[in-house]
Design a protein around this nucleic acid. Structure first.
Length: 522
DNA sequence: TCTGCGTTGAGGTC
DNA sequence: GACCTCAACGCAGA
C-alpha cells in the first residue's frame, strides 16, 4: 500500500539531508494539517518548509463563456469554497509559524512548481498523489521537468531531488485493490469490499510548530485572494450556499455529526429524505472530503469508534461507513478504467445512441422542465456526459470519480443494469414530501398551488391556477416531455441497446472460441 | 451453466 | 412499514 510506503519512507528518512534542506509542500487537494503524510514528511529534518498553492486559471479565473458564473471548470460556489479552504489553511499554518504561499500559475501549475523548485533550491518535493487524469497529467509533467532540469547537475548532483507523493486522499490505494483483483478494477461494490480489507489509520502526529518559510527571492507571491480579487464582482452575499470551506469547519462539522451516535448507528442511505434541505439527511461532509479538508482515514476511524461504542449498527452498503466505501469503489474503478468519463472508449460503459437535444438539456439545466419535484433530476434520453458536465461545474462537492460513477450508474450505462426501473418525477418525490415543501421553497411561484397538484401543476384546473397566481405555460412551464411517453420510449431503446450488447458479447465469445479450436487443430 | 443477488422503482395489498 | 408483483438486467461465485 502506498500509504504504508509513506510510513516506511518517513522512518528511513536519509540523515544526509539534515545539513541543507529546503522542502516544498505542494497543495492541490489535501487542504488540511491533520493526517497529511506529505506535510509530515516535508517538515521532517527540513530547515525550511515552503507550503505552496498554485492558482490554476482553469479553476479560478472567470470565464465569461461558461453557462453559469465561474471559471472554465468550476462554478462560483465551489471557487468560493476553495478560497475559504485556502484561507483556513493559511491561518492554521500561521499558527504554526508558517504561511501559505500562493503562486500564479498563469500558463500551467506544473511549470510554476518546477520554476520555484529551482529558485528556492528545493531538495524535497512533497505532494499528495492524485488519481484523477488531470492530477496525473500534472504529476507527470512535474516529474519529467524535475528530471530534465539542467540545474540538477550543479545543484543536487550528489543527492538529487527527492519526490514524495503518498496516497492519502482515499482510504486505500486504488492501484493496490486493482492489483489484488488480477489487474482489473472490481465492478461490483461487494467484490470491492471483499478485496479492500481494512484501511490504515490516520497519522497521529500533532504539531506545535513547523519549519519556517525560507527565502522566496524574486517570486511574485500572493496572499490568498478574495473572490473579488479574482475578478468576480457580481456576487451577492445571499446567493452563497450555507456551507463554509476549510479544515476547521470540516472538523467542527464532523464533531457535530459524531455527537449523535444513534443517528450514525441507524443511518441507511436509501431511507434518507432527499427533500430534506433545512436539516439535510446526510452529513454534508462530501465537499470537505472532495478538497481533502477532512481526511477520509480520520473520518473512517471516528465512525468505527462510534460503532464500537453503540454496538448494533447498520452495515455497508447502506451505512454511513458504507458511503465512505462507495467513494473508494468509484475512485478505484475510475482509476483503473481508461476513458472512465466518456462513453466511447470506455469498456465498462454501454454504448447508447443518446439523443442530442440542446433545448431539453438547457431546460433541465435551468430548471424549467415543467416537473416541479426536481425540475432538475431527470433528463429524458440525453447523453449522461452532458448531465455530468452540468454537475461537475455546479456541485460544491463535485468529485471526478464519484460524479462520473454516479452518472454511469443512473443512466444504466455501467454498474447498474435494471434500466427498466425508472424514477417518476411525480411519485418519487411525493413519497418523502407529500405536501411539496421542497418544491414550494425552491420554486416560489408554485407556493400557493394546492398539495394535490403541486407535483403535476399542469393538471390543475384553470380556476385553481388563477387562484394560486400561477398559470401553467405562462408563470411556470408545461412539461417539456410527457414522462409516460418518454420513459416508455427510453425503456424500449435501452432494451435494444442491451440486446445488441449481449449479441456483440456472444459473437466475440464465439469467435474467440473458434480461434482457440483452430489453434488446437494446428 | 446455473443461481443468487443487487444502497435508493412503482404500485399494489395488508 | 413490510411485503409482493411487475418484467427482467449482468456480475460473481459455485
Amino acid at each position: 500500500m502506498a500509504s504504508e510506503a509513506a510510513a516506511s519512507s518517513i522512518s528511513s528518512f536519509p540523515r544526509r539531508l539534515a545539513m541543507e534542506s529546503n522542502a516544498l509542500l505542494w497543495f492541490r487537494k489535501g487542504l488540511r494539517i491533520h493526517d497529511n503524510p506529505a506535510l509530515d514528511y516535508a517538515r521532517r529534518e527540513s530547515n525550511n518548509l515552503f507550503p505552496v498553492f498554485v492558482i490554476d486559471p482553469r479553476y479560478l479565473h472567470p470565464d465569461s463563456s461558461a453557462f453559469s458564473l465561474g471559471s472554465t471548470r468550476a462554478g462560483i460556489n465551489r471557487i468560493r469554497f476553495l478560497l475559504e479552504c485556502l484561507s483556513d489553511l493559511d491561518s492554521s499554518l500561521r499558527r504554526l509559524g508558517s504561511r501559505l504561499l500562493v503562486l500564479r500559475g498563469d500558463s500551467d501549475p506544473a511549470s510554476a512548481i518546477c520554476r520555484i523548485v529551482k529558485e528556492w533550491k528545493i531538495r524535497k518535493l512533497c505532494f499528495e498523489y492524485d488519481t484523477e487524469p488531470y492530477g496525473q497529467e500534472l504529476d507527470r509533467k512535474v516529474k519529467i521537468m524535475i528530471v530534465r532540469l539542467g540545474f540538477l547537475k550543479d545543484f543536487a548532483s550528489k543527492h538529487g531531488i527527492e519526490v514524495f507523493c503518498p496516497v492519502s486522499h482515499t482510504l486505500f490505494n486504488p492501484a493496490d485493490v486493482i492489483g489484488k483483483n488480477g489487474g482489473k478494477p472490481p465492478l461490483t461494490y461487494q467484490s470491492f469490499i471483499a478485496l479492500a480489507g481494512k484501511p490504515e489509520g490516520p497519522l497521529e502526529v500533532t504539531y506545535s510548530e513547523l519549519p519556517p518559510v525560507g527565502n522566496v527571492g524574486e517570486s511574485e507571491l500572493l496572499t490568498v485572494p478574495t473572490i473579488e480579487e479574482l475578478g468576480y464582482k457580481e456576487m451577492i452575499e445571499e446567493e452563497f450556499p450555507p456551507f463554509r470551506g476549510g479544515e476547521s469547519e470540516a472538523l467542527r462539522r464532523l464533531k457535530e455529526v459524531l455527537k449523535d451516535k444513534e443517528w450514525i448507528a441507524n443511518f441507511e442511505k436509501p431511507k434518507g429524505d432527499p427533500s430534506a434541505f433545512l436539516k439535510p439527511a446526510t452529513t454534508v461532509l462530501s465537499p470537505y472530503l472532495k478538497f481533502g479538508c477532512l481526511s477520509s482515514r480520520y473520518f473512517y476511524q471516528r465512525l468505527h469508534n462510534v460503532y464500537q461504542i453503540v454496538g448494533k449498527h447498520t452495515s455497508p452498503p447502506v451505512s454511513l461507513l458504507g458511503q465512505l466505501l462507495w467513494r473508494e469503489f468509484f475512485y478505484t474503478v475510475a482509476f483503473g478504467t481508461p476513458n472512465f468519463d466518456q462513453m466511447i472508449g470506455n469498456k465498462i460503459c454501454k454504448q447508447v445512441p443518446w439523443r442530442e437535444d440542446e433545448a431539453l438539456l438547457v431546460a433541465w439545466r435551468e430548471g424549467r422542465t415543467g416537473y416541479p419535484w426536481i425540475d432538475a433530476i431527470m433528463i429524458q434520453f440525453i447523453h449522461w456526459e452532458k448531465g455530468r458536465d452540468v454537475f461537475e461545474r455546479l456541485l460544491l462537492d463535485s468529485d471526478w470519480a464519484i460524479n462520473n460513477g454516479n452518472w454511469l450508474w443512473l443512466s444504466s450505462s455501467a454498474f447498474f443494469n435494471q434500466y427498466y426501473r425508472i424514477y417518476s418525477p411525480i411519485s418519487f418525490g411525493k413519497k418523502y414530501d407529500p405536501d411539496g415543501k421542497y418544491i414550494r421553497h425552491f420554486i416560489p411561484v408554485l407556493k400557493d398551488i394546492p398539495n394535490e397538484y403541486v407535483y403535476e401543476p399542469w393538471t390543475a384546473p384553470l380556476s385553481v391556477q388563477r387562484k394560486a397566481n400561477c398559470i401553467i405555460g405562462k408563470d411556470y412551464p408545461r412539461p417539456v416531455v410527457s414522462h409516460d411517453t418518454a420513459s416508455k420510449e427510453c425503456k424500449k431503446k435501452m432494451g435494444e441497446v442491451y440486446a445488441k450488447d449481449r449479441s456483440m458479447k456472444s459473437c466475440k465469445k464465439e469467435s474467440s472460441k473458434s480461434a482457440t479450436l483452430r489453434k488446437r487443430k494446428k
